[in-house]
Amino acid sequence: MEITALSEGLFTVDRSKIFVPYNGQQASGPGGVLIGVTPFLISTGNEYILLDTGLGYEKDGKLQILQSLQDQGIQPEQITHVILSHLHKDHTGGSAGKTSGTSYQLTFPNAKYYLQKRELDFARQQTDNPSYHHPALNLLADHPQVVFLDDDAGQITGQVHFEVSSGHTPFHQTITIKDGEKTIFYGADELPQYSYLTNNFNYKNDFNGRQSMDLRTKWHTQAQQEHWTVLFCHAKQRSVAEL
């Protein structure tokens, strides 16, 4: 099993939720931060699994996630699974692209897209929230490639387990992948950077900050005891860490 970080780069983002590529100099607006945006590819030999799809950032007219996959010798048609932790636009932007006018199509034509149905229902109600890209949500809501997860925990494949964690958004989910004795853990926006383990606060951008904080304490202990490989979607440098 191989893990590939498909970095879209560094961005500044503030309360407007507009992601601006970082040029090494500019400051973000009020309440702004500098973050990386990184979806992950898990290659099992028979399957190519994407954990989130990033912003959908384009460079020279091409989605950065597609360029990153091409650099690995992988075409979009080869992706078998797309697992969405939650539906904020910096995690779903590469899921779908505009074809013409206002029409959209899914980026990975042969993949099954896995997402929490309750998360989608919640997200579609946030009509004035700039954290969401509603054309993509509307496409996901009624598409034959989408597999809706209704349970709080379960299996996606024999190696891939999901669990609703409900810290960052009401039905945010984490992903755990087993490879023999090895555990790969993706906490998405409840564990977006390594520093969240060492500076474990009740962050205001979480739906339930106390829940996220308590989960990080539990995960940190378990990760160290069981030597997890942890994936950090918003790391500026260290996106994969062995604990």
Rank of each mutant, 00 (worst) to 15 (best):
I156R: 00
Q224E: 13
F232L: 07
P130G: 10
T38N: 14
D214G: 06
D90T: 10
N202C: 13
G154V: 03
V160N: 05
K17R: 15
Q237F: 11
L10K: 03
L51P: 01
P109K: 06
K204T: 13
T80G: 13
K112F: 09
V37H: 00
V20R: 15
I35C: 14
Q145I: 14
R124A: 05
V20F: 06
R216A: 06
D179Y: 05
K98N: 12
P170K: 01
L87N: 04
T107Q: 12
Q25T: 07
H227Q: 15
V82Q: 06
I184C: 02
P192V: 08
E242A: 11
D189T: 14
T157V: 06
S195M: 07
A136C: 13
T80A: 11
D189R: 04
F19W: 14
T102F: 13
G54H: 08
C233R: 03
V240R: 02
T176R: 07
T53E: 13
G154M: 03
D206P: 02
T92W: 01
D152F: 06
S131D: 13
S68M: 10
F185G: 05
I156L: 04
S239P: 00
N199S: 13
G56Y: 02
D206T: 04
K204L: 12
T217D: 05
F148K: 06
L140D: 04
Y48F: 15
R238W: 03
S239M: 06
I79E: 03
Q173V: 08
K117W: 11
R124Y: 04
P192R: 05
L55N: 12
L6E: 10
F232Q: 08
Q116A: 11
S85T: 10
G93F: 11
D189V: 14
Y203K: 07
G29W: 01
R210L: 14
T44C: 02
P21R: 13
D14V: 04
H161D: 14
L87I: 02
G24M: 09
A235S: 09
G32R: 01
H88E: 15
D152H: 04
